[in-house]
């Protein structure tokens, strides 16, 4: 299955989305990421029962914080699919990529660039 996916994102593998914490998402934005999406197993299918539910809550928490600090909560999103759904993963990646392209670069990245240019 050779599926085309956008090449402008980095995949960070975790044992379970339950491992993803709010701080991991925030750090990605602090380092200049334009968007973050968390892809977990189908709800109800978590090997650890609640891992993907925890992840969803944390994504929601991160979105709230990002809204408050002016980055925008719409830049972070949670998706669910099963490990056998490669085409769906590709589809979600394209969907997320299009959305971020529409939103443009993260204000943090722009502010950091401005600072670099000024220096």
């Amino acid at each position: 299955m050779r599926l085309k996916i956008p090449a402008n994102f980095r995949i960070i593998r975790v044992p379970c989305t339950g491992k993803v914490d709010v701080i991991h998402i925030l750090r990605a934005f602090e380092k200049g990421a334009d968007g973050v999406y968390v892809v977990g197993c189908m709800e109800g299918d978590c090997h650890y029962n609640e891992g993907n539910f925890r992840a969803r809550k944390r994504v929601e928490q991160a979105a709230k914080i990002l809204d408050k600090v002016g980055v925008g909560g719409e830049r972070v999103k949670m998706f669910n699919l099963s490990s056998g759904e490669g085409p769906l993963f590709a589809q979600y990646s394209i969907e997320m990529n299009n959305k971020i392209m529409e939103l443009g670069p993260s204000p943090i990245r722009l502010a950091k660039q401005d600072k670099k240019n000024a220096a």
Binding site: L26, V69, I108, A111
Partner: peptide, 9 residues
């Protein structure tokens, strides 16, 4: 992290 991002912004 949130404060750093807010003030950088």
């Amino acid at each position: 992290s949130a404060l750093r991002m807010y003030f950088i912004n």
